[in-house]
Simulated assay, not measured.
Amino acid sequence: MNANLNSLGGWVAKPELSPRELECLGWVSQGKSSTDIGTILGLSARTIDSYLEKAASKLGVRTRIEAVAIGVRRGLIEVD
């Protein structure tokens, strides 16, 4: 089962983030901008924004910072 127990004791689906979405969130957690991440990955800033928007949507949040916080809390990404 691909699910987690929430704080109320109910099961919630664990979102399936793509490897690229996780990679972008990891770079955001390191303080990188979309332009920086695009340069690192050889992609446009708009493409990076798209990956981050999809990740945030899958995690049920609106901003990239919220997505990073949820990702860390759920163990989807690690921060140093």
Results as ranks from 00 to 15, higher is better:
residue 54 K to P: 00
residue 28 V to N: 10
residue 24 C to W: 04
residue 27 W to H: 13
residue 14 K to E: 15
residue 14 K to N: 14
residue 15 P to F: 00
residue 26 G to K: 04
residue 34 S to L: 01
residue 66 E to K: 08
residue 72 V to T: 12
residue 11 W to A: 05
residue 24 C to N: 11
residue 71 G to P: 07
residue 68 V to W: 04
residue 50 S to V: 01
residue 7 S to L: 11
residue 33 S to A: 01
residue 70 I to Q: 15
residue 28 V to S: 10
residue 78 E to Q: 09
residue 36 D to G: 03
residue 72 V to R: 15
residue 26 G to Q: 05
residue 40 I to S: 11
residue 52 L to E: 07
residue 54 K to A: 13
residue 4 N to F: 12
residue 21 E to R: 08
residue 45 A to S: 15
residue 29 S to H: 11
residue 51 Y to A: 10
residue 34 S to W: 08
residue 4 N to R: 15
residue 29 S to Y: 08
residue 58 K to Q: 11
residue 15 P to T: 00
residue 68 V to N: 12
residue 62 R to P: 01
residue 30 Q to W: 05
residue 63 T to H: 04
residue 80 D to R: 08
residue 8 L to H: 13
residue 44 S to L: 02
residue 30 Q to E: 15
residue 72 V to K: 15
residue 76 L to E: 08
residue 33 S to D: 03
residue 5 L to C: 02
residue 40 I to L: 15
residue 32 K to L: 09
residue 64 R to C: 01
residue 16 E to R: 06
residue 66 E to M: 04
residue 77 I to Q: 09
residue 5 L to A: 10
residue 33 S to R: 07
residue 47 T to R: 15
residue 74 R to C: 02
residue 3 A to N: 07
residue 24 C to P: 09
residue 31 G to N: 11
residue 20 R to A: 12
residue 69 A to C: 03
residue 1 M to I: 05
residue 49 D to R: 09
residue 3 A to F: 09
residue 47 T to F: 14
residue 26 G to T: 05
residue 47 T to P: 04
residue 13 A to Y: 09
residue 65 I to A: 13
residue 7 S to R: 10
residue 22 L to H: 06
residue 73 R to I: 01
residue 74 R to I: 00
residue 6 N to Q: 06
residue 27 W to Q: 11
residue 78 E to C: 00
residue 64 R to L: 02
residue 19 P to N: 14
residue 68 V to K: 10
residue 71 G to R: 03
residue 38 G to Q: 10
residue 42 G to R: 06
residue 48 I to E: 14
residue 69 A to S: 05
residue 27 W to E: 10
residue 50 S to C: 09
residue 22 L to E: 12
residue 58 K to H: 11
residue 79 V to C: 08
residue 61 V to P: 01
residue 79 V to I: 14
residue 57 S to M: 04
residue 22 L to A: 08
residue 13 A to W: 07
residue 68 V to P: 06
residue 71 G to D: 05
residue 33 S to V: 00
residue 56 A to S: 14
residue 13 A to Q: 13
residue 39 T to P: 00
residue 74 R to A: 08
residue 38 G to D: 14
residue 38 G to R: 09
residue 66 E to H: 06
residue 46 R to T: 04
residue 45 A to P: 07
residue 53 E to W: 03
residue 23 E to N: 05
residue 16 E to M: 06
residue 48 I to M: 14
residue 25 L to A: 03
residue 68 V to A: 06
residue 12 V to H: 11
residue 7 S to Y: 05
residue 70 I to H: 05
residue 45 A to L: 06
residue 71 G to A: 04
residue 32 K to F: 03
residue 50 S to K: 13
residue 26 G to I: 02
